[in-house]
Measured scan of single mutants.
Amino acid sequence: DLSALRVEEVQNVINAMQKILECPICLELIKEPVSTKCDHIFCKFCMLKLLNQKKGPSQCPLCKNDITKRSLQESTRFSQLVEELLKIICAFQLDTGLEYANSYNFAKKENNSPEHLKDEVSIIQSMGYRNRAKRLLQSEPENPSLQETSLSVQLSNLGTVRTLRTKQRIQPQRTSVYIELGSDSSEDTVNKATYCSVGDQELLQITPQGTRDEISLDSAKKAACEFSETDVTNTEHHQPSNNDLNTTEKRAAERHPEKYQGSSVSNLHVEPCGTNTHASSLQHENSSLLLTKDRMNVEKAEF
């Protein structure tokens, strides 16, 4: 173990290094160091905050020279020094078990990766560091076993998940096959086929009936047209017969005018059967003409 005197000496050296690497504005270890034209180094955030307070150039807090945003430059070497100082402080805390008085939040800088452990060898070769390295080497064999167990647990979990997924996939297939086998029997399929065939026959029977009705309507229309044509021909046949009657009536009127007047009046009210309204109107006109002729003949006879 380190003596108290040596611990104090190391602590004083760390404090001196820390004062050199402090920012003059925030009085902390410089984060993202930036250098000016006057070779003074500050935190990048502190300098941008200072420049944004005034429009135009501002003055350096140490030498009062003008500073602009374009004049600022990043210093990589200074950032490396800060990183190495942080590593020294971490090693000091691990070796002594004491917390550094002016320690900052170094938890963000710590890294437990194997590459980081290899890099620590180049920091300080001390008894405390050696003991700590031995402890780490002793704890390393235990870690692979834990990793193997965790991997086995994960693989077993994956296997159970896969088996569950396969079961879920197989179950719908089985149910679907069961439904297909038990849903419709052979008799049901035959009945469905016969039902479809009967429906098709009914459709075939319905369509000819409609065509037959249309044919019957067409035949009825044709018969009505033929009947009207026969009526017209009958009226045409009746007209010459009426003319013959008129000639006979004229002759009778010349011989017996008194008797014919009474008979002509009675004939006005008689309509021949089986004739249309057109034929009756023609008869009325003929009878009126005959009456006028008879009157003329009677007057001539009187004179």
Rank of each mutant, 00 (worst) to 15 (best):
D1K: 07
S3M: 14
L5S: 10
L5K: 08
L5R: 05
R6C: 05
V7D: 07
E8P: 12
V10R: 14
Q11T: 09
Q11D: 12
I14C: 13
N15P: 15
N15T: 13
I25L: 05
C26Y: 15
E28Y: 11
L29H: 14
I30L: 05
I30C: 03
V34Y: 04
C38L: 15
D39A: 10
D39T: 07
F42T: 08
F42S: 05
K44N: 05
K44M: 01
C46N: 13
P57F: 03
L62D: 05
L62T: 06
T68F: 01
T68I: 02
Q73H: 13
F78A: 12
F78K: 14
Q80R: 06
V82A: 09
V82H: 13
L86W: 03
C90Y: 06
C90I: 11
C90V: 09
F92T: 14
L94H: 15
L94E: 12
D95T: 15
K109S: 00
K109D: 11
I124L: 03
S126L: 08
N131L: 08
R132V: 15
K134Q: 10
R135K: 11
L136R: 08
Q138T: 10
P141E: 06
P141L: 06
E142V: 09
S145H: 00
S145D: 01
T149I: 00
S150C: 03
L155Y: 11
S156A: 13
T160A: 05
V161C: 03
R162I: 06
T163Y: 05
L181F: 00
D184Y: 04
T194Y: 02
C196Y: 00
Q201N: 03
Q201C: 00
L203T: 13
L204H: 14
T211E: 03
T211G: 02
I215T: 14
I215K: 13
L217F: 04
L217M: 13
D218A: 03
D218T: 06
S219N: 08
A223T: 11
C225Y: 01
E226T: 00
E226H: 15
S228T: 15
E229V: 01
T230K: 11
N234S: 05
T235R: 02
H237Y: 08
N243I: 15
N246Y: 00
T247S: 11
T248V: 02
E249L: 02
K250M: 06
K250L: 01
A252C: 11
P257L: 08
K259Y: 00
Y260H: 08
Q261M: 13
Q261L: 01
G262K: 11
G262W: 00
G262P: 08
E271C: 06
P272H: 03
P272M: 09
C273M: 02
G274P: 15
N276C: 13
T277I: 02
Q283I: 00
H284I: 09
S287N: 06
R295W: 11
E302G: 13
